[in-house]
Design a protein around this nucleic acid. Structure first.
Lengths: 358, 358
DNA sequence: TTGAAAGCGCTACCAC
DNA sequence: GTGGTAGCGCTTTCAA
């Protein structure tokens, strides 16, 4: 019994008001938790009615009226990657804690799609935008910021944009890495990087490498130690490896600018039947925060183990969402940068000194 | 110049109507693409005004009025997994094609959170729900379906729910796998599985295994060949492996019910210093559609290479979204099941016959 | 402490 | 073809 039975359409605030013999205002107050402004008996009556009719307030109507949706748009450059996924997880978790819902969309590394998606999100009245940008220069995004839309960046900076941002700087760990290579007795350090330098971290790592290359290896022209490869095309990686070996006197060490390139280089080394670290050293970033949380330490399983700089995308995402929550609460505060530290984990692939000793 | 300059607040349809000297209705018709109902000159005027004022229609107001949000809720059991990610990618792509926006939320494998999130999504007036369920029995979800909310399931069925669903069945590939093990001369097939059988595919694979175990190995009691392990706790996997070896006369082969268990078993085999396939065979599902798209074939890199059943989460997601788009267009059509095929890729870890021959 | 009424930005319906 | 107007479900004054 008692099942009111019929009406297929979802009950509205008016239905509740009518059924509970109170005004819509009262119901509104109740569902917004301002129970202190209500007499206990009314509150109880409203609550019971809500239960009975299985009432769920419409977030849409609420947003329209209040101009707040408790929704944050999350624009991620590439979600098909553990790095992107981890960012999303971190963001979602923090937003959920704070009572916000994340609307996640993926730009598939396309600057154009990024623009369209930002548009879509804004139409949906998101309270703010958390952006892991597919591109270095997004003029529209900058304009949004000027227009007063709260924007927080993750991992990748955008030119000319003064936003809150959560990222990792790579100077310190890149320095540690390259100095380590020199100490281990490698003859030369080479940077393997993908062609596009449109994205921030890749460029940062590139620059950090060049800066350190001079000091540690006394390289007169660091750019000569940079090899552009496309991990999707084996031949380009093989060619770079061949050239590197042919032009180096003694074992060189490869530094990859991202995980994909690292794996690509690893595969090339295997194809050539070379052994690490004796013939060639290998190291690069471990952007895959996810792997560790899955209990699987991939750099450990790759050949003899690969030396990596560990980034923490989950933490970046979490920090970014935290920045957003803070800004939403205090729109006028100064922009803040959160630097999520990265560490270097040394493994067999670069331990040339030890390998030679034994 | 010409920048209208001032008003910070976003223009509304009324602003456009006023500025273009037309009615709101006309503007509405234009932004909804019903240009055939408009005289070309009016359309042009409206378009120009929209450009000039940088007008973006409010999806919120539109949803409130029209009861359609062009938004689909995507509830994924665990997004921190390549499997979940791939589903999301597939779903998002198909939805975007069809003009819908995906609102993705992750349940972190919690049935309770799944319920809460479904709630949140419905408050936001999503037109439908695509669910990769964290649990086998979700009574609330079934109720939603009864209430007329369009629901499509991905990969995991829900008890008592008659919904559209996109999944993979495992009978055929499990049969191929186990028969292959028998042919290769393994003495026994053993299923390594995680404790909870709440989720569909794991249970399906379990059942498929038992059915095939009798036939291929003539096992009188297939359940005796099932070992429950927890991949997160090494000891449980080690213990299962030890017991398996102690109670089998000749090399046994392990079949894992999911990728995590497969990796766990692999690690245990390494810890015991056993070699594959001579001492023990190993195979299981490759749920990580993502890895292949990244250009990295992980089962190939694990030891001598691991035999896997390849599932296609991206395709499942895509198919699920397609089902949703179809249902939204034709709410009354019969429920449909899409079976995404899985294949078995044979690698060294189970090629006992070949290993012994050489 | 409670309620009446206006209105958020848009679409649907009905007139012209 | 075009426009006026009511109203989607809620919050927000303001008045009682």
């Amino acid at each position: 019994m008692a099942t009111t039975g019929n009406s297929r359409r979802r009950p509205t605030i008016s239905d509740i008001a009518k059924a509970a013999h109170v005004s819509k205002t009262t119901v509104s107050r109740f569902i917004n938790g301002r129970t202190d402004e209500l007499s206990p008996d009314l509150a109880a009556r409203v609550e019971a009615t809500i239960r009975e009719l299985d009432y769920h307030p419409s977030a849409v109507a609420r947003s329209l009226r209040s101009h707040r949706s408790y929704t944050v748009g999350v624009l991620v450059a590439n979600i098909a990657t553990p790095f992107g996924t981890s960012i999303v997880s971190g963001v979602s978790e923090r937003l959920r804690e704070a009572g916000y819902t994340a609307i996640v969309v993926a730009a598939d590394d396309s600057a154009q799609r990024q623009g369209e998606l930002a548009d879509t999100l804004l139409r949906h009245q998101v309270d703010g935008l958390i952006v892991n940008s597919a591109t270095d220069k997004d003029h529209d995004l900058v304009r949004l910021g000027d227009r007063g839309v709260p924007v927080v960046l993750v991992d990748r900076a955008v030119e000319g944009a003064d936003f809150d941002i959560a990222l990792s700087t790579y100077d310190a760990s890149m320095r540690a890495l390259v100095e380590h290579l020199a100490e281990q007795g490698f003859a030369r350090a080479a940077l393997f990087t993908e062609p596009f330098v449109e994205v921030g971290p890749r460029r940062d790592r590139h620059e950090a490498f060049c800066a350190v290359d001079c000091g540690a290896f006394g390289s007169p022209d660091p750019e000569a130690d940079v090899f552009v490869v496309n991990p999707w095309e084996h031949e380009t990686v093989d060619a770079a490896l061949d050239e590197l070996l042919a032009t180096t006197d003694g074992p060189p060490a490869i530094v990859a600018t991202n995980t994909l390139t690292l794996i690509g280089a690893f595969n090339a080394i295997q194809r050539r039947g070379l052994s690490m670290p004796q013939d060639v050293g290998l190291c690069g970033p471990d952007d895959w925060g996810w792997a560790h949380r899955m209990g699987w330490d991939w750099p450990e399983s790759l050949g003899p183990g690969v030396t990596t700089m560990v980034t923490r995308p989950y933490s970046m995402g979490f920090a970014a969402a935290d920045l957003m929550v803070t800004r939403l609460a205090q729109p006028e505060r100064a922009h803040e940068t959160r630097d999520i530290p990265t560490d270097v984990v040394f493994r067999a692939s670069t331990l040339l000194g030890r390998a030679q000793a034994s």
